[in-house]
Design a binder for these strands. Structure first.
Lengths: 203, 203
DNA sequence: ACTTTTGCACTGACCAGTCAGTTCAAAAGC
DNA sequence: GCTTTTGAACTGACTGGTCAGTGCAAAAGT
């Protein structure tokens, strides 16, 4: 009774997340109707409101869910490099790959995240800010360690460089998905790796 | 008659663009009402429909207008470097600065552009694709010239590298605007320049 | 003169959220 | 074993409100 019903609810919520994420990525939050989400999830509209208190709350929990996955994936990439005794630059490289793999697996979520991140005055703005901070902090941490270890130049601005690296991965990956989906993840990874290692214009 | 009436219309349209761009950047296209746009522009609702055939068309023309400004600004930065006899890497640097200056001046437009760019199935999707291509092509052109001149590594993937550079600038600039607006454009520019020149992790 | 803008009432479609009722599997009673 | 009860999960018709777009006569601008 406990386990079975908990499982059923969980499964319903999962279906609703999956339906909502693609619709909202395609059309945006406001243009997506609750009826559509319910339809695509194969569920009645009432069920949406049985599981979430509002359309907005469904969306916020979806954001939490997705960013949680991303943050864990980045952190794990960094930690694994650590355990293997790799350098901080190798950790950054591993995180780029983890980021690409995430976007490859959840392209709709990524689209939606990018579209909402810099909006102001929206209900979920504060939620999103916290989530963003968690994800970027992982990158910043590795950069800081790299500078401390003398692997990275002391000149770098941690915050801006972290943002720039995230942007690099994000935009390159979305472009890959949208405009040349036939490329492999390795292709994209090496293009970005080249930039990270300063082999584009640096000698 | 021609010039004077054209000017009045032009001024009204400009007011509508300005009103629409901030509202849509904040709330998204669907959540922004025509009444709000008219109000903020200090204009009657009927005027909106006298000047544009629909809300969607107003938005599409706004996109064209904004991306036109950006593309011209990037191209001009590259050309000026050229005339001065600068290298292609210097041209890229100048374009980074031009990109930052654009985002600094039109932050709302940039937010809105990013939010819409990777959406699929929207009415203005095809418009946006063409516009994106125009802007990215400028960067790709400079990269190609750089490789041809032996200034840039032949290993680089033009398309992906262009996307990555654009992403770097975009995300770093939006982060600058949103989370540390006290920084100067020079600060941000040097952080990105460091990455471009491979002085972050390269030796 | 003629173009552009105003103000405002109106319509019809659409949509978030509600609620009274249904389903069904597991627990309780016998 | 088998019936009855319980309650969580789900359903879908309905409501109240919102909004894009229209129509038009009068005013303002050039």
């Amino acid at each position: 009774m406990d386990s079975s019903s908990t499982t059923r609810r969980q499964a319903t919520r999962q279906k609703l997340y999956e339906a909502a994420v693609t619709l909202i990525a395609e059309k945006g939050f406001s243009a997506t109707t609750v009826d559509e989400i319910a339809d695509r999830a194969g569920v009645a509209k009432g069920t949406v409101y049985y599981n979430f208190k509002s359309k907005t709350e469904l969306f916020e929990e979806l954001l939490r869910h997705g960013v949680g996955l991303l943050t864990r994936s980045l952190r794990s990439a960094a930690e694994q490099t650590d355990e293997r005794g790799g350098t901080r630059v190798e950790a950054l490289d591993a995180m780029i790959r983890a980021g690409l793999a995430f976007i490859d697996r959840y392209p709709a979520f990524t689209q939606l995240y990018v579209a909402e991140l810099w909006r102001t005055n929206r209900a979920w703005q504060s939620t999103l800010l916290v989530l963003r901070q968690e994800a970027v902090a992982v990158v910043e941490g590795v950069l800081r360690d790299g500078v401390a270890a003398g692997e990275l130049s002391e000149e770098i601005d941690i915050q801006l460089t972290a943002a720039a690296l995230v942007g690099m991965v994000l935009v390159a990956a979305l472009d890959w998905q949208a405009f040349q989906p036939e490329r492999t993840i390795d292709d994209v990874h090496s293009a970005l790796s080249l930039l990270l290692h300063g082999r584009v214009s640096g000698r």
